[in-house]
């Protein structure tokens, strides 16, 4: 396997090629939920494995050789480096190809891209994380970052909802957080047919009844399917959240990740450069954002 710097040295014209994928080995495939596996990767270049740092909320471009490249948000926290964890739902051609790979197979990674959550702006404030379904994938990076740098934040609240207990991503580690007293971890499922669920049952916005939130000193990071945005945003605005304290992570088609290919353009912003984290104020000003 040629490593990226070897490739670069033999192609001086393209020595600094932002499209160059760096090969990474699949260290672990964890079947969290049907068709929502957690892939753990480690760069083959040792130096890159050590030096790669991202901001929570950033994404990478993941190459599955022979199938294509796609943007995937980073689910692991930069406070836990050396490996990258990616929560990938099996939905399309490239994700299907990824699901055919096995441990120790090799993929390509470039990045990290995007703005990530504005950590320095959030620092010193309360943090509310609200996610539904797959929305936990990017928020999980911020969650562990906040827990690992607990002194940077005041109160931390997590609200996460899934359809049923078996659909909840990161279920084991999140249920383990419920007992922690440095975070108010609120987990809910729409329905619990098996009767084994020990947490909340009901829709996600219902969790607001169990949280103490001071809208003027809280940043809310929201991620989920459109229905989550619809109801959570409505609730946050009712509570009086400043529009620039509501942070959303958006999904768009991307072919380059670096502001060239044009696909992720919303109005006059590129999701890959100025996003994927946008404030609600951005959303009001950019048509077709949500």
């Amino acid at each position: 396997m040629l490593l990226a710097d070897e490739v670069a040295s033999s192609h001086p014209v393209l020595a600094d090629n932002p499209y160059q994928p760096h090969m990474a080995r699949i260290v672990r495939i964890y079947k969290m939920v049907d068709n929502n596996h957690l892939f753990t990767l480690r760069f083959m270049e040792d130096s890159l494995a050590h030096s790669f740092r991202h901001t929570p909320g950033q994404f990478i471009m993941l190459s599955v050789p022979g199938a294509g490249e796609m943007p995937i948000s980073i689910s692991s926290s930069p406070s836990r480096p050396e490996v990258l964890e990616l929560c990938v739902r099996r939905v399309g051609r490239v994700t299907n190809a990824l699901y055919r790979l096995r441990t120790n197979d090799v993929v390509g990674v470039r990045g990290p891209y995007g703005n990530g959550y504005p950590i320095s702006e959030i620092t010193g404030n309360d943090l509310l994380l609200a996610a539904g379904g797959l929305g936990m994938a990017p928020l999980r990076s911020l969650l562990w970052y906040a827990l690992d740098h607990r002194d940077k934040f005041n109160n931390i609240t997590l609200m996460y909802g899934a359809k049923r207990p078996e659909d909840m991503l990161f279920r084991e580690e999140l249920t383990a957080l419920v007992d922690r007293t440095d975070i108010n971890c609120l987990l809910t499922v729409d329905a619990d047919p098996g009767g084994t669920w020990r947490n909340h049952v009901g829709l996600l916005p219902g969790l607001f009844d169990h949280a103490k939130i001071d809208p003027l000193r809280t940043y809310a990071a929201v991620c989920g399917p459109p229905v989550v945005y619809k109801f959570i945003l409505q609730r946050l605005l009712e509570l009086g959240f400043p529009k620039n304290h509501i942070l959303m992570s958006l999904e768009r088609r991307m072919k380059c990740g670096i502001g060239k290919c044009g696909h992720c353009s919303i109005g006059y912003k590129y999701t890959c450069l100025q996003g994927p984290i946008f404030t609600y104020w951005d959303a009001i000003n950019l048509p077709e954002m949500i």
Partner: peptide, 27 residues
């Protein structure tokens, strides 16, 4: 198992320009 990665001109008028894997199409 070898292959090429090719880029080609695209247009925002094409149906799939803003289509994502889950089937959502933003335009």
């Amino acid at each position: 198992r070898a292959g090429d990665r090719t880029r080609s001109w695209d247009s925002c008028l094409f149906y799939d320009h803003a289509l994502v894997g889950s089937g959502e199409n933003f335009r």
